[in-house]
């Protein structure tokens, strides 16, 4: 669901500019979107364009490894970010890693947001004992530090991208659940919901067609933040050797690989670390601006 779609479904959205337009006027949002777009375009289009510097191409390891950034091999191949300990092009691996890291982050945030919307909607709409149970579970889950719990989840399975997505998704639903629960409680007694109920719509239909579309705006902020957090956690787990496994490049395992060479080639760790930081910052800027835009829309 896009921001524009969410705002157009708000019943009392007046002639004020839509959320997307309001958002684009915010410099934070523009910066964030541009940063994210650069990485997405680089991830999609970058690896084929690099050609000769193909990251999976292993030439002469001993003479080609640890090349400095902005260096060129005798046969004229540029290594803009240098080469790693196996002589592989760091930029190429960074862009291939972007595919994995962005995909894992997006999917994990999707899992987390879906679980959160489900739990929050059921709790807020049902009320009573169901609500109390979900609230208690949410509070308990919030008390568990996320990284140690992720360690526990991946401790007993073979690490990999799919496990990473599920584990990060399963531990990130609480924020969204709280927001959606609050919104659903606010919306469920509004006149148009009563009307739908009066016309004979069942609870599932009322929740899905009438309550949820009007209760998701604030979850957008949590979802945007969640993508950044998920990318950060994927890189963190892979850094610890418990996420995406080499030779598949992910930003996290590239940071880990470069860490051994921190004293002779610090750019090998710092380049993927900077990539993680920039993308996380991008999503947090978008979330900040989204938060402000929604608050502005509410204020009128």
């Amino acid at each position: 669901m896009t921001a524009a779609a969410a705002s157009s479904t708000r019943v009392d959205a007046g002639p004020a500019p839509g959320l997307a337009a309001r958002l684009w006027r915010d410099r934070r949002a523009r910066t964030g979107v541009i940063v994210i777009a650069v990485f997405v375009v680089g991830a999609v289009a970058g690896p084929p364009l690099l050609g000769a510097a193909a990251p999976l191409h292993l030439a002469d390891v001993l003479s080609g490894r640890f090349a400095a950034p902005l260096s060129r091999t005798p046969d004229g191949v540029w290594h803009l970010l240098g080469t790693d300990g196996f002589g592989r092009d760091e930029l190429g691996r960074l862009l291939l890693g972007a595919r994995i890291s962005l995909a894992v982050g997006l999917l994990a945030a999707l899992v987390a947001t879906s679980v959160g919307i489900g739990a929050g909607a059921v709790a807020g709409y049902a009320g009573g004992a169901v609500d109390r149970a979900v609230v208690a579970a949410t509070d308990a889950a919030l008390a568990i530090p996320r990284v140690p719990f992720l360690l526990l989840l991946v401790a007993l399975v073979e690490p990999g991208a799919a496990v990473t997505v599920l584990a990060i998704g399963a531990t990130g639903w609480m924020g969204v659940a709280r927001l959606v629960r609050g919104e659903v409680r606010a919306v469920r007694s509004r006149a148009f919901v009563e009307a739908a109920r009066g016309l004979g719509a069942g609870p599932g239909r009322v929740l899905w067609r009438h309550v949820l579309p009007n209760a998701l705006t604030s979850a957008l902020v949590a979802a945007a933040l969640g993508i950044g957090t998920a990318i950060m956690l994927e890189a963190g787990l892979s850094f610890l050797g418990l996420g995406v496994q080499p030779p598949t490049p992910s930003w996290g395992n590239m940071i880990a690989a470069g860490r051994d060479a921190l004293m002779i080639a610090p750019w090998l760790s710092l380049a993927p670390a900077a990539a993680v930081a920039l993308v996380v910052l991008g999503f947090s800027l978008v979330a900040d601006a989204l938060d402000a835009a929604i608050a502005g829309e509410r204020a009128g």
Binding site: G228, M232, A235, G236, F239, I255, R259, L262, S269, L270, A273, A274, V276, A277, V280, L281, S284
Partner: peptide
């Protein structure tokens, strides 16, 4: 917004 491992490595 910086992950702690990025700050640490920096």
């Amino acid at each position: 917004a910086l992950p702690s491992y990025v700050v640490a490595l920096g």
